[in-house]
């Protein structure tokens, strides 16, 4: 059963796992700009942003995108106060996953 830390989102793969490789995720954190304000992890509905330590830096932590979870939905862009989350456009404007299946089989139940 689901327990422990409550997360907004768990286990959903709106795109096949190969999708992130084939069409790279479009959200990326410019780590030099990140001020560790902790605003983006809670706004991400897909649990695709975590804070990681970076010892020695002025801000001791930075946001990092988990590529496998990022659906490129765009929610995090407006939550960032310093525009540290940037946009990597699709290489191919027509890019689509080859299969539209959400891969129910992969869901860990």
């Amino acid at each position: 059963m689901i327990s422990g830390q409550m997360m907004k989102y768990r286990g959903l793969y709106p795109f096949p796992p190969s999708f992130a490789k084939e069409f790279p995720p479009i959200a990326q954190v410019v780590e030099e700009h990140c001020i560790a304000c902790d605003r983006c992890p809670p706004i991400c509905f897909f649990d695709a942003i975590v804070m990681e330590n970076r010892p020695g830096h002025k801000y001791s932590r930075t946001a990092v995108i988990i590529n496998a979870n990022c659906t490129g939905c765009g929610l995090c862009f407006d939550a960032c106060p310093v525009d540290a989350i940037i946009w990597i456009p699709d290489k191919d404007g027509e890019a689509k996953p080859k299969t539209a299946s959400p891969l129910m089989e992969d869901t860990d139940l």
Binding site: R39, P42, G74, F77, A79, P97
Partner: peptide, 23 residues
């Protein structure tokens, strides 16, 4: 309407989002 099973990227934008207020 099979084409509606594909979502554009990005598909959300938070308008008038107050960064101080969050949610």
């Amino acid at each position: 309407y099979e084409h509606m099973r594909f979502w554009p990227r990005p598909r959300y934008k938070l308008l008038d989002w107050d960064k101080q207020m969050d949610g």
